[in-house]
Design a binder for these strands. Structure first.
Ligand SMILES: [Mn+2]
Ligand SMILES: [Mn+2]
Ligand SMILES: [Mn+2]
Ligand SMILES: [Mn+2]
Lengths: 222, 222
DNA sequence: AAAAAAAATTCGGTTCATCTAAATAACGGT
DNA sequence: ACCGTTATTTAGATGAACCGAATTTTTTTT
């Protein structure tokens, strides 16, 4: 009985993976409950089941950690999610903010051959429309080192992929300067004395950003 | 509470639609049970639920018939199914026999905008890779009158889309003559006295088919 | 080291989608 | 019109995935 995993199980694994990125720590029940937006009693239920299937290591009250087989599943879901996002943006002209919800559905389509064909069709992309790395067929993530704005040179045009610092202050500041995800900026000059950047936006409005600010913004060259 | 329909509900509606094509009759429980490969008691259960949601007209022992709202749902599922099949064949180079299973999954993806974009991307196709008609955005099916081989003329090249008669004998016969779905045939001549056709296949092998046989084969011109 | 607070689990329910076995209704042939 | 066969529904169960309330364990604070 190699029954396929349910969508629910796949989603739990994906979220456990997401929450354990960075830290070596175990993921705790309430963090998961919050992330998945579900009662923590339900999470406990599911963790028991995933534990029995050896997709996670779980001992009550001890938090949870993916086994290698659980990780394999999680990474595959993420791979499919991000490939479909690329498809939606590149081939069907969706904008970056519309694709996540649809990819939440498409990521559960089960057909290894489809995944492979899609990957080829899209030209073996390494990053999704939000700049997130797409694991390859072996589950290996590309060198992710996303470039920060301060690494670019005068004359480059970049588009904003995300931020490194999601504090309310910083985000408010960016919003006030009219910088958001997807914005396009051109680097006019870099002041020698403090490495601050003078940029112009799509409307040719001039924006000055300190080097510190520039280190908190992920971009890609256009 | 406009909760979306479950996949199971969508599938029942789709199968009810399929079984009621052609006939004006109601669809009966056991036909459905056989088609969906499920116990008929389970079918009865579901029919009650679909009846309550006014997706079907159902009275016990009386068989079942889609309401207009049920038909709308069913046709939309069929539209998505067939569009995805076109995508898989045209864009991802799948062969006709591989796509149905994957489309069974993709047909349940919920995003009207995705359906629309896909439709445009594929060039508003009217038929799927098996020659089945694709309903348009209003649920109207294209004039389906699929052409039968005997309607073509000398000099035409056609590819086989399906058959009109799925009796074992006939299918065996075609197989023996090396004619299958997707085969390409060229019409060399049509004999005047009995309207039988002399065809040549991809390997230039000559095949003779009676007019009766030709009336049982669906084709499209290449 | 207690007490208080927070985190996690257990317990008892619910809904959906399925099953098998038993009961009932409809149908077809004599 | 009756009887047997077939079709259909009912009854009773199960497992997945969720919930809220009560309980237990762990952690933090006094
Ligand atoms: Mn996403
Ligand atoms: Mn998901
Ligand atoms: Mn199909
Ligand atoms: Mn389906």
């Amino acid at each position: 009985m190699d029954k396929p995993l349910s969508f629910a199980e796949e989603n739990y694994l994906k979220h456990i993976f997401a929450l354990s990125e960075g830290t070596e720590d175990t993921v705790n029940t309430s963090a998961l409950a919050k992330q998945i937006k579900i009662a923590s009693s339900s999470v406990t239920d599911m963790l028991k089941r995933l534990g029995e299937k050896e997709l996670i290591d779980y001992e009550k009250y001890q938090g949870v950690r993916l086994t290698s087989s659980g990780k394999r599943v999680a990474v595959n879901i993420i791979r499919k999610h991000r490939l479909w996002e690329v498809f939606l943006v590149e081939k069907l002209q969706f904008s970056w903010d519309e694709v996540h919800e649809i990819a939440e559905q498409l990521e559960h389509i089960r057909s290894p051959k489809l995944t492979t064909r899609l990957y080829e069709y899209l030209g073996r992309p390494k990053f999704d429309p939000h700049g997130d790395p797409i694991p390859d067929e072996n589950g290996d993530f590309p060198e992710t080192r996303r470039q920060i704005l301060s690494e670019f040179k005068v004359g480059d045009s970049v588009s904003i992929l995300g931020v490194n610092d999601d504090s309310p202050e910083f985000l408010q500041y960016l919003k006030q300067e009219n910088i958001g995800l997807g914005s396009t900026l051109h680097i006019d000059k870099i002041l020698a004395h403090d490495k601050s950047m003078q940029l112009s936006d799509a409307n040719n409005k001039i924006i000055m950003l300190s080097n510190i600010s520039c280190q908190h913004i992920f971009c890609k060259r256009l």
